[in-house]
Design a protein around this nucleic acid. Structure first.
Lengths: 153, 153
DNA sequence: TCACATTTAATTGTTCGCAATTGAATGTGC
DNA sequence: GCACATTCAATTGCGAACAATTAAATGTGA
């Protein structure tokens, strides 16, 4: 027999869960990005790595991982694919042979100009004012940082 | 030579992108959920499927996919793993042989009680009032729905 | 110096997520 | 009734994401 929906079930309802809101919004973003990034020959995580490198070049894998909250298990194969696409170069550091430094190639640098169109398209798709998005972004980042703080315990 | 940071670069800065806020928050949630869901023997996407089924049982794969924004390529293997864990049963519909109906087993139903502890722990980890979370959730859902509307064009 | 811990990438194995394709079942227009 | 399109799940292949392990380089303490 079907059970009656009870007040005790409310916290378990899908629509009440902020995590699902975030999870499904992340996928929605991914789907909006897909056609834009296809033109650049990048996946979304690859695009994030390129964003990091466009800000600062010649950094160890670890630094990229800290900025994106990703580990080497994710980044190593991703960076190898970027290298195969001639966008980055991977070289062992002279000072510390454990580190692999990631540097942009000329092609990698050049891609930045093509990438400038992307945030504009995303803004349009969001159908939202910049100030609203900035407020939301800050709230989500604050939540993320509180969650990450709990993990480190 | 290193290029000077310019105003034109601002939209490309990682910290300015709401999509990265959402993306990284989703991963942070995942990491907080991990130890909680390990006790239930579920991954996070599996947990989402169970949330759907706890609300309504005996539904075709497609219905689950519409609620979670996932397709059969993701759900079919996931549901087979849930079946292997004796939490659901997959049977072809009599009325429409194309459909596979997903029903909870007794174990699957029983797991709901153990799952009630999860949202409480997440709320605690969020370190945030319920009303704040509800507001954020509604904003994020609204954004997600606008993004999804663009995709369907 | 030498044993030991720490740091850093790489590797392996499992699970998502999705595009593209396949194949069977169903619905439709004529 | 029959060709045709549509619907639905399954499959295949690729790219994340992460846990756990490995291996090499570096740092530290006695």
């Amino acid at each position: 027999m079907p059970r009656k929906s009870s007040a005790a079930d409310q916290p378990l309802r899908l629509d009440n869960q902020i995590c699902f809101a975030v999870y499904s919004a992340a996928h929605a973003f991914n789907r909006v990005y897909k056609p834009l990034l296809d033109r650049l020959g990048l996946t979304y995580p690859q695009y994030l790595v390129m964003l990091v490198l466009w800000e600062r070049d010649d950094v160890p894998v670890k630094d990229i991982g800290e900025k994106l909250f990703l580990d080497s298990g994710t980044l190593t194969p991703l960076l190898k694919r970027l290298e195969a696409a001639h966008l980055v170069k991977r070289t062992r550091s002279r000072e510390d042979e454990r580190q692999v430094l990631i540097a942009l190639t000329a092609q990698g640098h050049a891609l930045k100009d093509k990438a400038r169109a992307v945030p504009q398209s995303i803004l349009a798709a969001s159908d939202c004012s910049v100030s609203e998005l900035v407020t939301m972004k800050d709230e989500i980042v604050a939540l993320r940082d509180r969650l990450n703080a709990v993990i480190g315990e």
